[in-house]
Nucleic acid binder design. Sequence first.
DNA 1: GACGATACTGTTAGCGCTAACCTTGACGGG
DNA 2: CCCGTCAAGGTTAGCGCTAACAGTATCGTC
Lengths: 326, 326
Amino acid sequence: MADVAERVGVSAITVSRAFKRPELVGPELRQRILDTAQSMGYVPNQAASALASARSMTVAVLIPSMTNMVFVETLAGIHDMLLPRGYRALIGVTHYSPEEEERLIRTYLQFQPDGILLTGTDHTDVTRTYLSALSSPTVHMMELLDEPGSLSVGCSQEEGGRLMTTHLLERGYRRIGFVAVQLDPRTLSRLDGYRHALEEAGLYDEKRVWRLPDPSSIHLGAAMIDRLMAENTDCDAVFFCNDDLAQGALFQCQRRGIRVPDQLAIAGFNDLPASAWTTPTLTTIATPRYAIGRHAAAMLLDLMDGKEPPRRRVDLGLTFIAREST
Amino acid sequence: MADVAERVGVSAITVSRAFKRPELVGPELRQRILDTAQSMGYVPNQAASALASARSMTVAVLIPSMTNMVFVETLAGIHDMLLPRGYRALIGVTHYSPEEEERLIRTYLQFQPDGILLTGTDHTDVTRTYLSALSSPTVHMMELLDEPGSLSVGCSQEEGGRLMTTHLLERGYRRIGFVAVQLDPRTLSRLDGYRHALEEAGLYDEKRVWRLPDPSSIHLGAAMIDRLMAENTDCDAVFFCNDDLAQGALFQCQRRGIRVPDQLAIAGFNDLPASAWTTPTLTTIATPRYAIGRHAAAMLLDLMDGKEPPRRRVDLGLTFIAREST
DNA sequence: GACGATACTGTTAGCGCTAACCTTGACGGG
DNA sequence: CCCGTCAAGGTTAGCGCTAACAGTATCGTC
């Protein structure tokens, strides 16, 4: 920066301003500075800038998984909101583990992020301590928090579970199973919704619920169909906690000649792109993950500007999508 | 850091060392320092550290897309290699545009990354200038570079195109079509491989090639089947440049009652998880993207340590997977 | 008992930038 | 003509950390 300043014949601060506060420098001097910098291959040093200004222009984003499209699309929403405002995202993958999340938080706090976006509401005590000791704002994504003072953008997973189960009941299914995998808080909320809906109908039966800690996959969904057949269960419908599971189930039913939905109805969750194309097409619930990312980022931008966001808890709702599989 | 040092009764540099060069501090003093830091909520300031040490411990990674699983898995390989060594990845998405890549490079150079990972070999002149003016090493992923001095890890896309086309010829198909979308350099290389193989067999016909700039998707694959039918093409096989396209095509064939592979054979590229489960299962070529990410990151680690990597151009090969759709 | 090697800790200076305050000159109103 | 105002640019100090060098015990060796 000093070299550029000398070459142009101004002081260093003027070069700094040409980059960071362009309105404070005369237009044609500013252009000369930028041109000179470009020709000398100079780019401002972000570390020095962050140190001097105490603003890193960085937002730490923690998501559970990168191979799950749901979070990738959330990320896209965050990016689209932050980048035009000059903020960068520092992305961490927690692999659904609060302990891993704590480790990542510790790492990313070293970057003095101006804001933090977390997925879910399930954090370790140490994480909570770190965050409350911090002046940077934190927004929780996906699930909704009821604690006063906390900020969250998402949708009700429990309502999603209830919605789908109610739909299956309306269609006349009475022996509805539920396959829960990964067992993260969102899956368990969906399971709660399912259970409540069935209990109200007097049809809940523990033996029709399968809980598996494995990550969701097409393969596992297919394997579950095999298992249901082997165990000779009496389900007339199965609600899978995730679309990729449900897709795997559909594929396997097709292979085994199980007629969907006549013999067995199948429902999913999240509305992945392929779900509109399987045979039969998959009944599911669309979650507004891109919007959640955008909204959470927008909220954070407000907070980082010192503004209070219009609402501290934003429910973006769910869209039920009835298709052929039920 | 000064506060922690005072509390423990040592100098600041000892606290610094307890974090960054733990072997230089006595074991139980180190533990006391770390405990005190933890209890005070202190984490080192990365910006100050980077400024003072001229090492950012950061690697800039640029990928074309985040919704394409191929790059997400590459990213996973990179992460798994870098994180244990204390490096962090700064991820940028270029949306397949060299100009966007140039913009991102400019942004990320401000972080003084210790290394850079780029996807592909298609860069603007300005990008090349920036990179050659830089002391940090750069490794190119996915495609292979022949320029001396450059570093690349990938596989031959052209060979992939040739491999699949040869397979289709061997199976007796004679009127083989190719659907190219996105039209990024990798797709075009696959198309080259397809063309060369057919030219050698004397069977290349321009009218069986479709080029579309749109991004790859299941929907587009399904639409292509409709289009092929509407245009009344004589193809007995279609090689789609991407598995999601091919999956869409399979779904649509099923819907329209087109028998695959008897009436029309369908081939894909990349081996996405669902391709082993469609009806019929999809013949495709598996690309070693996770390994590419790992290998590229390992190469970068060598270079950042000042070591020369064993090889400057690493071809990780392809795996042909014959399934039911051909 | 002197000496070098080893293990640990401290001092000094400066990384590249920007916040806060200061100076200068031009301009317009009364 | 004075004064306030404003735009444009400069000065000074310091952000939090670590490289480089400089001690200072402790120990084993000859």
